[in-house]
Amino acid sequence: MKQITRWNNWPSDDEVQYLSDKANGLFHYAATVVQWIEGQIFQYGTASRKRVFEKFTQMGIGQLEDLYRLILMSFENIDGPAQDADWRASQLRGFQHVVGTILVLDEPLTIHQIIALTADIPEDDFDVANFLQRFCSVLIPGTTTSFEEATPQMHKSFRDYIMDGHAPEEFCVLTGHAHLVTARSCLEVIVKAGSQSDVVLKYSVHHWHEHLRKAVEGSTTWEDERMWNLFEQVVDEGIVNVWHTKPWVVFLNVATAGWGLLKVR
């Protein structure tokens, strides 16, 4: 009973009206706000009741970019100096990797499958599942499906905000780099095929070389020892049997990527 009482009369009618005025008729804005508030309540409890509305006083009416910036800053506030520079760097790398992967996927995957695909991100550095849960408001707004079975449906306005240079530089996703980390994740799945779900392995087999080609076409170059080690492993006879599919397509994409790398050296 005490738990219920703590939330009596919250939000107030005035606060609900305030949110409605801010949304200015934009359903996506309203849906995103509600899910973000829900996430803040889940994370901070009653301590978030006043804070979430204070944050909205800083935003213009119906301004999605202001809302997206607020969501990003609640994840990692880059406006001030980092208390732990290594922690901030790992959080931003994780953001770039996971959001970038979602943005460049050639086929839709569920949250559960995305977690499996990005399993190459060290758990001690970045908790992918926790991150995706925190970013539900922009990744799967309004869904009634269970979290892990939901398929991210990123609104075009957020996609444009992240990819077209409107977001703070630390959060901007470069398409070429996103394809590169996705290609690397796919290769990791192939090398460790026994521990991954069939859907994720199938995706990785069919698309790793396409992501690699698109990474180079996106002017991405790399000095990534792990990537080269993965290349050596995937040509092992036992692993080739796993990913052997349309070899001429694989050859064409890899050759195109290789030629692109040679041209920029």
Rank of each mutant, 00 (worst) to 15 (best):
L105K: 10
I121A: 09
H166T: 02
E148D: 07
V98W: 11
F95K: 02
L117I: 01
T110P: 11
P122N: 01
T118R: 08
S146L: 12
I121L: 15
S137C: 15
L92E: 05
H112R: 14
A150N: 00
V98T: 12
E148S: 05
M163H: 00
G80E: 13
A167F: 09
D127W: 06
R93H: 14
L117Q: 04
F171T: 00
Q91E: 05
I114Q: 03
G142D: 02
V128R: 08
Q83C: 07
Q113K: 08
I162A: 07
E76L: 08
I140A: 06
P122G: 05
Y161K: 02
D164L: 07
I140N: 08
T143N: 02
V98H: 04
F131W: 02
T144D: 12
S137T: 02
T145H: 11
E123P: 14
G100R: 09
D164V: 05
D160H: 06
I115E: 11
W87T: 15
L109H: 05
F95G: 03
A119Q: 13
A119D: 15
D86T: 14
I102F: 05
G165W: 07
A150Q: 00
A150P: 00
L103I: 14
T151F: 03
S90H: 12
M73Y: 12
E170G: 05
S74Q: 11
D124S: 03
E123H: 12
Q83V: 14
T145E: 04
I71E: 00
D106A: 13
F75G: 07
P122S: 06
D86V: 14
L109T: 00
E76R: 11
